[in-house]
Nucleic acid binder design. Structure first.
Lengths: 126, 126
DNA sequence: CCAATTCGTTCCGGCTGCGAATCGAAATTA
DNA sequence: TAATTTCGATTCGCAGCCGGAACGAATTGG
């Protein structure tokens, strides 16, 4: 009965567990949210824009960008129109990273659907 | 064109961003993975079992359980059969938390599908 | 030209999670 | 019973992220 309700969550669980199991550098929720936003929404992306979109402080975005740059998953570029602004740009490495992540989610969807048919959801006990 | 490939990832992005935007106590990846495993896979759940399943050390699980207990999302119970073991149990609060999270993902799926039709994925630039 | 505003970064103390080693309690083995 | 093994918790020093305040640089407005 609860199986239908939990299916998308089960996909999330599988992807989450697989991600934790990897040795891959694990990004914090904020870092991941920033990375995904940069790659999957229309540019340009600025520090203040990301801060506003994610509802966090600007220093938090600066720190996230420090980390992402350090990993080569994104990079900063001076805005030619406004010297104060910083444009956040994509990298090849970041594209690869997200492609792999997408595949991890896809795999979780496939396996999750298979397991749901076996009734693996179990009951919700108090 | 790339939209098809990115759709599941886009759902992940939306859920991730929405989750970051909330003031809700944000769990680390490990904590979330542990929580999901406890609620969505068959009991019993022990520290060593979770450590093995998530491929992390036992102290890491102990710390995660400390945090989850503190938030009321899970609780420990002595194993009546083996005094050394600890059984990790579900709570009502945890069930509510995950239900809300599932709804957040479902909303992301709905909105993500709508946006994909508008071509919001944009191109992958080097 | 000079003040006010905007933008991103840096500094500050504090908190949390990390791995590795160690611990005591409980169970198992001999 | 005595030695060993297993289980989870605890301790240690360390690294990373936190929010808020203050900062320098660039732009804007009078």
């Amino acid at each position: 009965m609860t199986g239908t309700n939990l299916t998308p969550l089960n996909v999330w669980r599988r992807a989450m567990v697989d991600n934790v199991r990897r040795d891959a550098p694990d990004l914090s929720a904020r870092q991941m949210a920033a990375l995904l936003t940069v790659y999957m929404t229309a540019p340009p992306h600025t520090v203040r824009g990301l801060a506003s979109r994610l509802n966090v402080s600007k220093p938090a975005i600066t720190r996230a960008l420090d980390r992402l740059s350090e990993l080569g998953l994104a990079r900063r570029k001076a805005d030619p129109r406004d010297g104060r602004s910083v444009l956040v740009q994509r990298t090849v490495k970041g594209s690869v990273y997200l492609s792999e992540f997408a595949e991890l989610i896809a795999a979780a969807e496939r396996d999750g659907a298979a397991q749901a048919r076996l009734g693996g959801a179990s009951s919700m006990r108090r």
